[in-house]
Design a protein around this nucleic acid. Sequence first.
DNA 1: TAGGCCATCTGGTCCT
DNA 2: AGGACCAGATGGCCTA
Length: 190
Amino acid sequence: MKTKNRPPRRRVPPQNTEGSPGDQSPDRPQPSSGAQMAKGLRSRTVRAQGARAEGGRRRPGLSGPAGRRDRRESSVQRRLESNERERQRMHTLNNAFQALREVIPHVRADKKLSKIETLTLAKNYIKSLTATILTMSSGRLPGLEGPGPKLYQHYQQQQAAGGTLGATEAQPEGHLQKYSTQIHSFREGS
DNA sequence: TAGGCCATCTGGTCCT
DNA sequence: AGGACCAGATGGCCTA
């Protein structure tokens, strides 16, 4: 079953801190449906935002009920900030995935590659290019001086250590064939 | 409807 | 100490 070519989805960030989908605390009620979930999140979000608006200033004395409330509010605030950073981090990661998709040749470009497809294709594309370069340069890259072709040495080490390359894959045709096969298997209903 | 993929939240751990 | 990174959990969206 394939899931391709979806329009990019934009979620409304729940911004809740008192019981998210990921919160496994057993003492918190778990929403039983998406609708309930959304509703619950919305109300919690409002409460959290209210707390933030109220807690913008520090009060003297963090002991006692007021102090506990302050600590709780600052904890909520830290969590919200942490969530935001995590969202940004994931967006950065997704941007990198998108940039990678755009430089990997693949068939049926109208369909978006999944993340795992992107990584797998990229890996084999690199292998294919490496083998091609080695063949064309006879293991010696222009501009590389020194005792030996480092790329070739690295390539040989990879083969010796991992043993991931079969006999046919030691040649660029092998890589290209594998890459080509993979492209088609990804795109044509595997 | 099941399954794949994804976004988000969250708590733990690592790093600076 | 605070931020980055990571992995698990959860629910939404989409396709076959």
